[in-house]
Design a protein around this nucleic acid. Structure first.
Lengths: 188, 188
DNA sequence: GTCTATATACCGATAGAC
DNA sequence: GTCTATCGGTATATAGAC
């Protein structure tokens, strides 16, 4: 594995575990087994390396989500599949987590992958809901973009509740609650 | 204003803005105008001071939420009032934010106020929903605790989406989406 | 109670040899 | 490309005078 890849992968892990402020160049070097000089040869500094790591994490998250959203079944079933995907709930979302960090939000290079990921995800789910409505499967009363934002927010907020409780239960409740409301909204 | 109060208030602000890892004793001293020796006279260290600040923030958040949830109107209207409360969305939730910080989650003293706040909030809203069902205002199909978790998650996740987009819009969409689903669920 | 001085470690990076 | 040395600054306190 190339030195750059080891650096990026270690940075991805540390950003997920400790956030941007809590991740030091030294910790990245230790986890990756790459020396100081080597790290600064390949990347100009911590923001540069973090940006590369976030771009990679964003692409991976998108691929994983797409696998569920593009699956078989009705719009409702595909959203349910996405929500019920097996997750290590207490680790949280490696992209959503970054939105809490002021240094990430303040740096366009760092915020861009985060923003793009959620824009894509909301748009993808909104499209699914619109499809379901066109097919007569879902009631037409709900606005697709608003409903999609609510679905994505339930997942992100579910992580927050789970970490606060040190238990996956609130996440699972929130997902069940959201699907319950969405199910009641299905056209008869 | 007492020295302790100035320290606690400054710590509350800094925890909200920068998180636990990103908040240093030095920054607290500068914002509060309290000296080093004085700070360490009143508090044993950063964790002690942060715990006091979080307990106070939790109590304040609870009081603000209760004002909406105990207001006039039906269960749906009171939940809508809570969701539509005027918020500085891009600042995020000062309690929910802490759930992302590994040092907070790992320290029982720091996590306790966060956990208790969300336990209380979910329970309060679940009770409201159960009341609405008993009164025949809301359909009885949805589980109150699950639905309440979804409502709270939408708010917390809405903050995440808003900060990611550097715009309040996704928050407002998520709230509208959630209320739309809840409204469709009202008994006729 | 509050002040200044001091301490050990780490942060994020640069310099220059190999 | 990788290494070691070095840098000015911060993190998180502790010590002891006043």
């Amino acid at each position: 594995m190339a030195t750059q890849d080891r650096l990026i992968e270690s940075t991805q892990e540390l950003l997920w575990e400790r956030g941007y402020v809590g991740t030091s160049p030294k910790a990245i070097q230790q986890r990756s087994g790459v020396g100081q000089g080597s790290m600064y040869h390949h990347f100009t500094g911590k923001p540069d390396l973090a940006a590369a790591a976030l771009r990679r994490s964003a692409a991976q998250l998108r691929a994983v989500a797409e696998a569920d959203l593009a699956g078989p079944g009705t719009a409702y079933e595909r959203i349910a599949a996405y929500l019920h995907r097996e997750r290590d709930v207490l680790r949280g979302c490696r992209i959503g987590r970054m939105a809490q960090d002021p240094d990430v939000v303040a740096d366009p290079q760092l915020r861009a992958p985060v923003e793009e990921t959620f824009d894509w995800l909301r748009g993808r789910i909104a499209g699914l809901i619109a499809e379901g409505q066109a097919a007569g499967e879902l009631g037409a009363a709900a606005d697709p973009a608003d409903t999609a934002a609510a679905v994505v927010a339930v997942v992100q907020g579910g992580y927050v509740l789970a970490r606060a409780a040190d238990s996956a239960e609130p996440f699972e409740r929130a997902v069940r609650g959201a699907l319950g409301l969405l199910a009641a909204h299905r056209a008869d």
